[in-house]
């Protein structure tokens, strides 16, 4: 159940993505339940690292997972992996709860209703994500720590800017490769 998909012949859509699509399209509680089992302990670990008490972390995990259920309609696997989508929800909810302010969010793109899922595009996004994880895994302990701090919300933009020489630069080249595809996909929606 660690979400890497069963590959018999060629890549398939990952379990996580399949679960999330089932939640979105069929309001599938069993799929939501396995998604919860996968993400809730990771979210709790993540939120505690970002500075929350265990009790507050549980409040945020609950809030995030409920938001995943309620906002499932805006999940689009052609543009984001499940973990990326949940990451942003987690940061948003964490900040809304701690700072008690409404975080400004970009306009949502219109999703192509009724459009057939393009599994090659979904798989391409997932493969970028896998390569990104590999690239992160190759960083030194200090570099990885710095990246984690930035994305856990422990560094300001100025501090991130000061640190770009090292880790951000390393993963940036990795990110760039995924960007062109994403940009192409977004331009098609305008």
């Amino acid at each position: 159940m660690e979400g890497s998909g069963t590959s018999t012949d060629g890549p398939e859509i990952s379990e996580q993505t399949a679960w999330m699509i089932a939640v979105r399209d069929n309001r599938d509680r069993a799929a939501f339940s396995v998604l919860f089992d996968f993400f809730a302990p990771r979210l709790k670990g993540f939120v505690i690292r970002a500075g929350s008490s265990s009790e507050q972390a549980e409040e945020i995990v609950q809030d995030v997972m409920l938001t995943v259920w309620r906002k499932a309609a805006s999940f689009d696997p052609h543009r984001a992996q499940v973990s990326a989508w949940i990451y942003q929800i987690a940061r948003n909810r964490h900040i809304d709860i701690i700072r008690k302010e409404r975080r400004p969010l970009p306009d949502e793109l219109e999703t192509q209703a009724e459009a057939e899922p393009d599994s090659s595009q979904i798989i391409a996004i997932e493969q970028e994500s896998t390569r990104l994880k590999t690239a992160l895994g190759r960083l030194s302990a200090e570099q990885r720590e710095m990246i984690e701090k930035a994305y856990l919300g422990e560094l300001t933009h100025r501090e991130i800017s000061d640190q770009t020489g090292l880790p951000l630069g390393t993963i940036k080249s990795r990110i760039r490769l995924g960007l062109d595809r994403l940009r192409h996909e977004l331009q098609g929606l305008r």
Binding site: K44, R49, Q62, A80, V82, Y87, Q88, L132, L136
Partner: peptide, 30 residues
């Protein structure tokens, strides 16, 4: 698109985050 890339990094870190067990009642609550 660039923001999407940063969210992907955040997602990769979330997936790799150490797991901390949630308390028994949390899932039932949700």
């Amino acid at each position: 698109a660039a923001l999407g890339a940063h969210q992907a990094v955040g997602g990769a870190i979330l997936e790799g985050a150490g797991k901390v067990a949630v308390s028994g009642g949390l899932k039932a609550n949700v």
